[in-house]
Structures are given as C-alpha cells and as structure tokens.
C-alpha cells in the first residue's frame, strides 16, 4: 500500500500525534511518503529515514507559514497528485478536520475522522467511537477508493522502528491563491498547555467548585501533574471558563491516561465525553453521584479539603 502521512511540526520537532501516524504506517511493508508545511528543514527530513519514509513533500514558502485552510489544501492536493496514495493518515485535530474533508471531496476518497484503532494487515480496518463514546463501531469501506483516516491523538502507540531508508525531500510550490479565503490574523493564546484532546492528564471541574475563582484550585492541581484543565458544561454555561474547556457530548471527547472529575456529578452527556479515559479519579461529596459508576478511584469528600492536600502531596513527590 502507498501511504501518505501528514505531519505537523514545531520547528524541527515532529508532533507526537504525527509520530503516531508514522508508527502505524511503519508497521508492515508499505511505501511511505510524508508531507509537512514549514518543514523543508533538514532536521525533520533527517528523522524520517528511520520510519522508512521514501519521500517528504515540504513547503517553506512564506505564504504557507500562516495557517489558511485553502493554502494547506492546495499543498496536500499536490502531494496527493504526486504520490497517489492508497491511504492518507493525519491527526483528528483542528488542522486535520479543517483540511482533509475537502481533500476527500476533491479526490473522491473515503474519509473518516476520530479513529481510535487501526490495523493495516490485509486492508484498512478501523474502529471509532460513536455518540461521543456511548458505543464504538467499525468502519467498513464499500469500495476500493483511496482512504483518508484521521487518528485521534493518544490512541495508538508510538513504536520506534529503524528502517534506515533514505528520504528524498521534494519541495512543492503553492498555486496562486483564489483570493476567496484570506487569513486576517492568528493570535496566540496565553497557554502553552496541550489541547484537551491531546492531553495525557486532565483535571476537570464542575459546579461543585462553587465559583469561578475557585478554578484556581484546579490550575494548582494541574501544575505538578502537567495536566490540562477541563470543565463540565454547567460551569461553561455559568461563564466561569470558556467553551473550549468543555468535556462531553457537546464539548470535547477525551481519553487521557488519567482524568480527574472534581465536583462533577457525572451527567450522561459528560460521561459520554470522558468515559474512555484509562483511569478516572472522582472527587465528590455525594457518594451517590453517578460519576462514581465510571470512576476507577473514588474519594467521597469535600473538594475544598481534598484538592489542596492532593496538590501539596503531588508537589512533594515530584
């Protein structure tokens, strides 16, 4: 199979979520190409041989360095036309979801986002959550069109391989833009924290925190854990935290290694978004709170007593 892996990079680093795609591609005997914007950088290319990458499509033009979906799509169209992949792998995140549906429409390819399991032995078999995690389903491909599979971050392991291939760098030049879509600005947020969907540890708070200022307790707890802070919808609706922090069926679906639900009752819509987490710690003063049915470890107690002690304890063992 010919595989094209879309990589996201920070300077010379390949993002972990992109390494996950590379790992999938590198298992087995496939022809692999990669593509990345802003990374003609030799440092990235020099890392690709170990994954068995034959070709890397890059674009270092200035106009490509500010994110624009049309520009990215144009770049990917060219990589597809040159490599003619049977399978494209990318991350199911804000870039992947913003670019690849259009590529699927243009090239008449099958498309699936949010994939949590993938197997390439004898074809492409994938599984994904449905109804924000209330169940899972396999995806059957009904014809032999090329496929675009967006992998949810943190779901497949990064397995280092050493294939020792030589990677040829192919610089692509963007076409003239249509002028219909222009990026006005990209303003960086204050947080350098990982997005909820990519975080390995999440500390979420709910109405039990009583008021917006008490979210500070969670930020303090997140610190020694290297965690990203999340929230229930109740506190988003109260305006304590922005919607981008909401976990649940109408927020983000997350599956970290460790999820803390602090002062969250565990409504069905919240559970849908987080019950795929590998370990769940619930801290709630009500022993009947439904969150305890999904939790791995439960503490019945007052969060205002428990959380500061926990923060101190975690700091002390660092």
């Amino acid at each position: 199979m010919k595989i094209l892996v879309f990589l996201e990079t920070n300077d010379s680093e390949i993002k972990k979520s992109s390494l996950e795609g590379l790992s999938v591609a590198a298992q087995g005997d496939h022809q692999i190409a990669t593509c990345a914007i802003g990374s003609g950088s030799d440092a990235v290319v020099s890392k690709l041989g170990q994954w068995g990458v034959e070709k890397h499509f890059s674009c270092t033009q200035d106009q490509a360095q500010t994110y624009n979906p049309e520009v990215y799509k144009n770049f990917i169209d060219q990589a597809i036309d040159q490599w003619k992949p049977d399978l494209i792998l990318a991350s199911s995140n804000n870039v992947g979801r913003d670019v690849f549906p259009r590529a699927a429409a243009k090239h008449d390819m099958a498309y699936m986002s949010d994939v949590t399991e993938i197997n390439l032995d004898g074809g492409v078999s994938i599984t994904r959550p449905m109804y924000a995690g209330k169940c899972t389903a396999q995806v059957t491909f009904t014809d032999d069109s090329a496929k675009i599979v967006l992998l949810r971050p943190n779901q497949v392991a990064v397995n280092e391989v050493n294939k020792g291939a030589t990677t040829e760098n192919v610089a692509l030049s963007l076409e003239e833009s249509s002028g219909n879509s222009e990026t006005v600005s990209v303003s960086k947020g204050e947080t350098e924290k990982l997005d909820l969907t990519e975080a390995e540890v999440i500390v979420s708070g709910g109405r039990g925190l009583k008021e917006a200022d008490n979210f500070k307790l969670l930020h303090d707890l997140a610190e020694p854990l290297g965690a990203t802070v999340g929230a229930s919808r109740a506190v988003v609706d109260l305006g304590w935290v922005p919607h981008s922090l909401q976990v649940g069926q109408t927020g983000k679906t997350v599956a970290p290694n460790l999820y803390f639900a602090v002062g969250i009752s565990g409504a069905i819509q919240h559970l849908a978004g987080m019950s795929g987490s590998k370990n769940i710690v619930a801290i709630n003063k009500d022993e009947k709170a439904p969150i305890f049915q999904k939790a791995t470890y439960g503490i019945v107690g007052d969060l205002f007593d428990v959380v500061p002690l926990l923060t101190e304890k975690l700091k002390s063992i660092q």
């Binding site: 390819m109 099958a110 498309y111 699936m112 449905m130 995690g133 209330k134 169940c135 899972t136 389903a137 396999q138 995806v139 059957t140 491909f141 009904t142 014809d143 069109s145 019950s275 795929g276 619930a282 022993e287 305890f292 049915q293 999904k294 939790a295 791995t296 470890y297 439960g298 503490i299 019945v300 107690g301 007052d302 007593d305 428990v306 002690l309």
Partner: peptide
C-alpha cells in the same frame, strides 16, 4: 457511500470503583 458503520459495541463494563476511605489526608 464509501463508508458504512458496522459491528457496533457497547463499552466494556467498568470494574467497580475503588472507594478510598479515611480522613482527607
């Protein structure tokens, strides 16, 4: 349609929650 959802599965039953007793410390 090029894709079809098949073989649905409900999430596996979770082991019961380990409740941790004692005072907060």
């Amino acid at each position: 349609s090029k894709t079809k959802f098949t073989n649905f599965e409900l999430p596996p039953e979770k082991a019961p929650c380990k409740m941790i007793d004692g005072d907060p410390a």
